[in-house]
């Protein structure tokens, strides 16, 4: 979180993290399509020629004046492909909150676990202890026939205590709920830094 007292801007960084093709970019695309255009910037995407994320996707949301401040929410996704580990670490740095977008397909469990483990390692390398950062788990692709129930997937990932949502991001189901949940967690977490 960074507060620019000159312009009274409260800047919050949210990162959508998860394995390749889990739907991180789709979440941002749906938010971009769903929110009031006056309240958002364009969606910047650095993609490869195969259309997967090369570095990150980015957009900013503006909430107007609240408590004398203008909160601005910076939304990022990380690239999912395995060989972009350094880029993922880089984008994750300085995050105020993380949405872990898991692919609910049963056969993607290993990818989810690897991604989850690496995310914890990266956070730890920044001195952020696991459990000490607002986090929301989104179990995406719940429409697939072999999808795992969010409760089961959460158990298999050994995630405890974080808000969890089932989602079909491509149909915009669960996208707004996930976003609101991470924002509430982040604001609860950072509010004491404001006074």
């Amino acid at each position: 979180m960074y507060i620019n007292w000159q312009s009274r801007e409260l800047n919050i960084k949210i990162v959508y993290y998860g394995p390749v093709l889990s739907g991180k970019t789709t979440n941002l695309e749906q938010i971009h399509a769903g929110v009031n255009p006056k309240r958002r910037t364009e969606l910047v995407s650095l993609k490869t020629h195969e259309d997967s994320t090369l570095f990150f996707d980015f957009m900013q949301l503006e909430l107007g004046k609240i408590g004398g401040l203008s909160p601005k929410i910076h939304l990022y996704t990380v690239p999912g492909k395995a060989y972009y580990e350094s880029s993922r670490r880089l984008v994750l740095r300085g995050a105020d909150g993380v949405v872990f977008v898991a692919d609910s397909s049963e056969d993607r469990l290993k990818s989810n676990l690897q991604s989850w483990r690496k995310m914890k390692e990266h956070l730890s390398s920044f001195g952020v202890a696991y459990g000490n950062i607002p986090l929301v788990l989104q179990c995406n692709k719940q429409d697939l026939p072999n999808s795992l129930d969010p409760v089961i997937l959460k158990k298999l990932l050994r995630v405890e205590g974080y808000p969890t949502f089932g989602a079909v991001a491509i149909a915009s189901l669960g996208v707004a709920e996930t976003f609101k949940a991470i924002m509430q967690s982040v604001v609860n977490h950072v509010q004491h830094q404001l006074v």
Partner: peptide, 11 residues
């Protein structure tokens, strides 16, 4: 803030 988040989705 919650109210503002709700408002985001109203075009």
């Amino acid at each position: 803030l919650d109210h503002a988040l709700e408002d985001l989705w109203s075009k």
